[in-house]
Every structure is written in structure tokens, then in C-alpha cells.
Amino acid sequence: MNENSMEVLPLLEVEGLTKFFGGLRAVNDFNMTIFKGELVGLIGPNGAGKTTVFNQITGIYLPTKGTVKLNGTNLVGFEPHEITRAGIGRTFQNIRLFNGLSVLDNVRIAFHSSAGYNLLDSILSNERYSQKEREITGQAQDLLDVMKLSRFQNEIVKNLPYGEQRRVEIARAMACQPQLLLLDEPAAGMNPREIIQLMDMIHFIRDNFKLTILLIEHQMRVVMGICERITVMDFGEIIARGTPKEIQDNRLVIEAYLGKGAANVA
């Protein structure tokens, strides 16, 4: 991880990303560069277009304009599953787990593209199938260990508390073996104690799995606590970038969150 010694290529390069929904401009000319190993935050008031940016990076929405490059390959126009296989894993703002299934199965599903056996192997239920299946189960259990979910392994996921469900989502996204992990409000609905745990976990997975993380978050203590760089959006545009300290003192950011001074409010 000595990036400084050599020339560093960006992991993710987003250039001129623009999205119109009919006449509504959700995101306008969004640029962002993320290097390997970084932990970057994307913040902004509700409706600023943060999730739209995520959905364009992951291919759920097709950008109206602009490019998204991962390791130099343009991903615009790829199907979401191809983008995931290329190395971008994500979680969702409103949790999207496979509700009827167990926690373990939720995580194992994400290993599908790297399962290493085909339909015929599974129909014959041969040695290759059982060996790979053991490997997948082991890896999934490792991830559950990391996210402290081991004891919920066989629970049906919809019966889990909210905070645990968020962690299952992170474990599932990591099972896609991504280089870049996109977390959409991972701390939403968590209590302060859970948030501290979560922050530790995010740090831990970044360091131990050599991940790069981009996260959207509303809770300032999370963003300010763990992100190294922050980008702030409002009304689909970037209004500020910088370190947490710089952002905290930025007049535009304060305005975006709290309104344009007392005179305008009255």
C-alpha cells in the first residue's frame, strides 16, 4: 500500500456524469476521482442526487451524459451484473435483501458469479460441486464473522433488527469481491452505539480486504469520523470538496444544510 512511491492510477474516474429524468436534472456534470485504498464520503441534503450518482455508477440508471471508468475501462452501458463482476459492489439506501432467505444464503448468493462450477456439476452433485460449495460457505461465514453476524447465520433475514440487516447488506456486497465498495447510507436507522461499531467495521474491512470505499451518509459524525475526503452535492451539483475539516467550515455547505441565512428564511 505504498501508493506514494509510484505513479498512482485512479481506481474510479467519473467525468461529466449527467442525468435527466424527463425535464428534471437530477445530476449535472458530476466529476470524481477515487484512488485505491481511499475512503471517500458523498454528502448532501435530501434530493441532492447522491443515490442517482450511485445508480449511474452501478448501471441501474443509464447516464444521460458522461463516463464512469473503473481502472481505465468505461463502464457506461454495461449491465449492472457486469459492473458488479468488474469490481463494484454496493448496498442500498432502503435495504434490499433477499427477505425470505437465511443470512448465510443472502451472502452466498453474491458468490454466484465466482462459484466455479456450472449447472451440470450441480445436477450431478459431483465432487467439484461439493468442494466449491464448501468453499463458498466457508468464505461466506468468514464475511459473517467480520460483520459480527455469525450467530444470525441461519436466521431468516427479514426477522433481523435493522442494524443487523444493514450489516448483512455490507457482507453481501463484499461477497461480490469488489475493488470498490459503494455504501448507501450504511448508518441509517442505527443507534449511536451501533454507529460506532459500524465505523470500526468499515475501517476494518477497508484495511483488511484492501477495499476502496465510497459512502453516502447523512449522519455527520460518521462522515466526519471516517472519511478522508468528502464531496458535497446540492441540487445535482458538486458544491464543495475537501477534507472533513475543510467541509465543516465551508460556507456553501452550511448554507445547503441550514438554509441561506436568517434574512432569506424570514
Binding site: H81, I109, A110, A173, C176
Partner: peptide, 12 residues
């Protein structure tokens, strides 16, 4: 269970 989530987990 969830088509969009499945897609985002690399499932065709």
C-alpha cells in the same frame, strides 16, 4: 426475492 438487488450482486 429482489431483481434489482440480484442484478447488483452480479447475477445475470
Amino acid at each position: 426475492e429482489d431483481e434489482i438487488a440480484a442484478r447488483s450482486m452480479g447475477i445475470d
